[in-house]
Deep mutational scan, measured.
Amino acid sequence: MPSETPQAEVGPTGCPHRSGPHSAKGSLEKGSPEDKEAKEPLWIRPDAPSRCTWQLGRPASESPHHHTAPAKSPKILPDILKKIGDTPMVRINKIGKKFGLKCELLAKCEFFNAGGSVKDRISLRMIEDAERDGTLKPGDTIIEPTSGNTGIGLALAAAVRGYRCIIVMPEKMSSEKVDVLRALGAEIVRTPTNARFDSPESHVGVAWRLKNEIPNSHILDQYRNASNPLAHYDTTADEILQQCDGKLDMLVASVGTGGTITGIARKLKEKCPGCRIIGVDPEGSILAEPEELNQTEQTTYEVEGIGYDFIPTVLDRTVVDKWFKSNDEEAFTFARMLIAQEGLLCGGSAGSTVAVAVKAAQELQEGQRCVVILPDSVRNYMTKFLSDRWMLQKGFLKEEDLTEKKPWWWHLRVQELGLSAPLTVLPTITCGHTIEILREKGFDQAPVVDEAGVILGMVTLGNMLSSLLAGKVQPSDQVGKVIYKQFKQIRLTDTLGRLSHILEMDHFALVV
């Protein structure tokens, strides 16, 4: 994948999101292997301009796509893939009243899908469409860049269908997702969380590099694949309309690839034109409109599966009536509230959605109805927002919020430890010299600072030695090549209790 991002070429006709291997024109390309080798690009942008032909009021008969309808489940399912879809609609009884809503608040519980998330729908649909058009064949390999849930859905379907599955996901995604993927037989590649989507090191860039190296491999490409919004247009939206008897006044959905909100909203605009569509985008993402909503100094966020630093091709923002931004604290607070007060075992993005819903639905009156999409299960986040310690460490809970008995030293300040200034190293000294210094002084790690004293990161003896043994660096290389740029900081005025929580999850903390 090139470091400079080429513009994806656009073909003359058809839909841009065809499933299957992508040609340089962004659509299915038939021909000899030699032709494909000559024409197939190194990668295709996940934010390529959409060429979708959908228009409100256009006859369904003019759609270029294969459409399906929700099917009634048999008493005995032939395999677990038949437990994807037909998820329950559940009334939220307490939270709406707590925040003064007059309307009825309903939750579409997508964590009841077989793999635990709304992404099971698009995973199965992308595979079925690729099999139907002859792209996927027995023994082929599926590769997908994902925040985890699409990966789980694909790995689940691949396990049943017999495909090899490789999932490329950023490091910030939970260990629970990784464990589930491994249990399903998927191979996992992790990428830096802070890598831009168009960087060769991003999950998108690495996935395309693997595709170019592995024979008979395919990126189904949830960011561009029409099967993504079509899955929701054909099934999720129809289920909502049936469950609500066609009567709903507002739908609120958090947005990642945009397939969920695009597919549902398009069908609702056709069948229930008075329904307002509300999009939820986390602070630090750029999906919301108008652009002024996205202006923030924050560039990272903890909530998973929603928000991006690019506009995915499948996201149709014209069908969203209003956007709201959400933050991590309210997302996790509301997710825990949904679990504790409503018994809905949902993930953090569901918290984002409901946090926005109780604001947006203030305009609705008694007798009206708001539906929220709860995308995934708490299963993926047992060591994250479900953990009091994690919430404390991230600053989303305060010590006084917890009532468990603490040891005698818990409320003492870090400054009472009488710490001395640490050994520091410059980023320009060599790895070999740094190892000598650390061994001589008896230290395992040291902060790396520039000549102005600005902290650049941390270097550890173990990481340097393993990097040297693996051949990633040489003793003569500058130590700046092996620094940890993500590390926890703590102030002298913070409590030892807070430091204790940090050290339970990290090997060190830097006192500043």
Rank of each mutant, 00 (worst) to 15 (best):
P2G: 10
S3N: 13
E4L: 08
E4V: 10
E4W: 10
E4M: 04
P6Y: 15
P6W: 05
A8R: 11
A8E: 08
G11V: 07
G11K: 08
P12L: 01
T13C: 01
G14E: 08
P16R: 01
R18W: 13
R18E: 09
R18D: 15
G20L: 09
P21A: 09
P21R: 06
S23I: 14
S23L: 01
K25D: 15
S27W: 12
S27R: 07
L28Q: 12
E34N: 01
D35V: 10
D35N: 12
K36D: 01
K36V: 06
K36W: 06
K36A: 08
K36S: 01
E37T: 01
K39I: 04
E40G: 13
E40F: 13
W43V: 13
R45I: 12
R45W: 08
P46T: 01
R58W: 12
E62C: 13
S63M: 08
S63L: 04
P64S: 07
H65V: 04
H67R: 01
H67I: 09
T68L: 09
A71G: 15
K72T: 05
S73N: 14
P74I: 03
K75W: 14
K75R: 06
I76F: 01
L77I: 05
L77F: 13
L77C: 07
L77E: 01
K83V: 06
I84T: 11
T87D: 06
I92Q: 01
N93H: 06
K94C: 13
I95D: 03
I95C: 08
K97Y: 06
G100L: 04
L101I: 01
K102S: 01
L106F: 12
A107L: 01
K108C: 01
E110C: 03
E110V: 03
F111G: 06
F111A: 04
N113Y: 05
A114L: 06
V118D: 01
R121C: 01
S123L: 14
R125F: 11
E128C: 07
E128R: 03
D129Q: 13
A130L: 05
A130W: 04
T135I: 04
L136V: 07
D140Q: 01
D140G: 07
T141G: 06
T141C: 14
T141K: 15
I142F: 06
I142Q: 01
E144R: 05
P145V: 03
T146K: 10
G148Y: 01
A155F: 14
A159N: 11
R161D: 05
Y163G: 01
Y163A: 01
C165S: 05
I166R: 09
I166Y: 06
V168T: 05
P170H: 01
S174L: 04
E176N: 01
V180M: 08
A183T: 10
A183H: 14
A183F: 01
A183Y: 05
A183R: 01
L184H: 01
A186K: 01
A186R: 01
V189I: 08
T191R: 01
T193N: 15
T193F: 07
T193M: 08
R196N: 10
R196E: 01
F197I: 12
F197S: 08
D198K: 11
D198Y: 04
S199Y: 06
S199G: 03
P200V: 09
S202E: 06
V204C: 15
V204D: 06
V204L: 01
W208M: 10
R209V: 08
R209T: 01
L210S: 04
L210Y: 01
P215C: 01
P215T: 09
P215A: 07
S217L: 04
S217N: 13
H218S: 01
H218E: 03
H218Y: 08
I219Y: 06
I219S: 06
L220P: 01
L220V: 03
D221L: 06
Q222R: 01
Y223I: 01
R224Y: 01
N225L: 01
N228R: 01
P229L: 08
L230A: 07
L230P: 13
H232P: 01
H232W: 04
T235F: 13
D238C: 07
D238S: 11
E239L: 01
I240R: 01
L241P: 01
Q243I: 01
Q243R: 09
C244L: 06
C244V: 13
C244M: 07
D245W: 01
G246V: 08
L248S: 01
L248E: 01
D249N: 01
V252E: 14
V255I: 06
G256V: 01
G258V: 01
G258T: 01
G259V: 03
T260R: 12
T260I: 09
I261C: 11
I261P: 01
T262Y: 01
G263T: 04
G263M: 01
I264S: 01
R266S: 07
R266G: 06
R266A: 13
K267Y: 06
L268T: 12
E270F: 09
E270A: 14
E270V: 10
E270L: 09
C272K: 01
C272T: 08
G274R: 11
